[in-house]
């Protein structure tokens, strides 16, 4: 299977290392893609920031006012030890206090599927961020469909490597599901990127069936409501 550090995880636990000291070219490919979308000097909140690789990169390379939120104590402590501003918390519980438009960009990378209330989380992202960048594993990817069809069991692969009874990924969705959610809550999709398992992007219409079948990852830039 692919090199883990370059691969895009389907399960968040399968994510490559997000080391705070990572050099620019060592930053995971999907995070690099996110970093490219962020204007220098902006105010950014990275939710589920791991041990702060993206934050450290943004602070160092783009002079960004970088803040983070992370559930795991080890991740938070690693970030704070490296001088990053990170709070221990989770997307379900700890985003509500932020005021409208508090950030230029809110990033939720590989975390949406692990939240208890994904709809509320997305609504909150576009409330507190002028823009929100959301990436998640596409459960409509053809291999996953085939795995369920052929084997008749919940898909487990090297990328989606948690058994159904022991996974943080409780709200998996397809790209089409996510687009529908954005329509329902009236959020404008500014831009979308489809990605393969190595984090390489290719351009397919997110509303079309092909993206939902061929993309292992969806990455969406949403307009904030502020």
């Amino acid at each position: 299977m692919a090199d883990r550090s370059a691969a895009l995880p389907l399960g968040i636990d399968a994510g490559g290392p997000r080391i705070a000291s990572a050099a620019p070219d060592e930053l995971r490919r999907d995070l690099r893609l996110i970093a490219e979308m962020i204007e220098p000097g902006s105010r950014v909140l990275d939710i589920g920031c791991g041990d702060g690789a993206l934050l450290a990169y943004l602070a160092r390379e783009k002079d960004v006012d970088a803040r983070g939120m992370e559930l795991s104590q080890s991740g938070v402590n690693a970030c704070v030890r490296h001088g990053l501003s990170v709070i221990q918390g989770d997307a379900d519980r700890d985003l509500d206090a932020f005021p409208v438009g508090a950030f230029d960009v809110v990033v939720l990378s590989q975390t949406l599927q692990a939240t208890r209330r994904p709809r509320h989380v997305v609504e909150t992202l576009v409330r507190i961020g002028k823009r929100a960048i959301v990436s998640f594993p596409n459960f409509g990817f053809w291999r996953i469909r085939l795995s369920l069809l052929w084997r008749g069991r919940m898909p487990v692969s090297e990328l989606l490597n948690n058994p159904w009874y022991d996974t943080p990924n409780i709200h998996l969705c397809t790209i089409r599901d996510f687009v529908r959610l954005c329509d329902e809550i009236g959020t404008e999709i500014e831009r979308s990127v489809t990605l393969d398992r190595h984090g390489r992007s290719f351009s397919l219409d997110p509303r079309g069936g092909l993206a939902n079948l061929l993309a292992e990852q969806g990455m969406f830039v949403l307009s904030g409501k502020a």
């Binding site: 803040r67 104590q73 501003s85 990170v86 509500d96």
Partner: peptide, 16 residues
């Protein structure tokens, strides 16, 4: 932390 988030202060929070 929530109160400081509400005023968008720069906060780190660690539970040990």
């Amino acid at each position: 932390v929530h109160a400081l988030n509400a005023v968008a202060a720069n906060v780190s929070f660690v539970e040990i």
